[in-house]
Simulated assay, not measured.
Amino acid sequence: MFLRSLLSINRCSLLSLVRTHSTTSNTTHFGYDEVPEHEKQARVNQVFTNVADKYDLMNDIMSFGVHRVWKNYFIQVVRPNPEWNYIDVAGGTGDIAFRYLKELNRFHPSSSSSVSPPEPSPQTTSAESSEKALVYPTSKCVVADINANMLAVGKQRSLENNLHDRIQWVETNAEKLPFHDSQFDVYTIAFGIRNCTHIDRVVSEAYRVLKKGGRFLCLEFSQVNNTLLQYFYDQYSKTFIPPMGQIIANDWKSYQYLIESIRVFPKQTEFADLIRSCNFRYVNYENLSFGIAAIHSGYKL
Rank of each mutant, 00 (worst) to 15 (best):
F2I: 07
I9W: 15
S13R: 11
T20S: 15
T20Q: 15
S22G: 01
T24R: 10
T24F: 10
S25F: 14
Y32S: 04
E37D: 05
E39H: 09
K40Q: 11
Q41H: 13
A42S: 13
N45A: 14
F48D: 05
F48E: 09
D56S: 12
M58K: 02
V66G: 04
H67C: 08
W70S: 07
K71G: 05
P82M: 06
E83F: 12
E83N: 14
W84Y: 09
I87M: 10
V89T: 03
F98R: 01
L101G: 02
K102H: 15
E103M: 11
L104Q: 02
L104G: 05
N105R: 13
R106W: 02
P109F: 06
P109S: 08
P109R: 01
V115L: 13
P120I: 00
P120M: 04
P120G: 00
S121L: 11
Q123K: 14
Q123D: 05
S126F: 10
A127E: 11
E128Q: 08
E131G: 05
K140V: 01
N147R: 01
N149V: 00
M150S: 07
A152E: 11
K155Q: 14
R157C: 01
S158T: 04
E160G: 01
D165N: 12
Q168W: 06
N173R: 14
D181Q: 08
F184R: 01
F184V: 00
D185A: 10
Y187T: 02
T188H: 09
A190G: 11
H198C: 14
H198N: 15
I199S: 15
D200S: 13
D200R: 02
R201G: 03
R201H: 13
V202Q: 00
K211N: 12
K211P: 03
K211C: 05
G214I: 06
G214E: 00
E220M: 04
S222K: 02
N225P: 03
D234Q: 14
Q235P: 05
Q235C: 09
T239N: 15
F240S: 06
P243W: 03
Q246G: 00
I248Y: 03
A249F: 04
D251Q: 07
K253W: 07
S254V: 00
Q256S: 11
L258T: 05
S261W: 10
F265K: 05
K267N: 14
T269W: 10
T269M: 07
E270T: 15
L274C: 03
F280V: 04
R281F: 07
Y282M: 08
S289I: 01
S289G: 08
I292C: 09
H296P: 03
S297I: 12
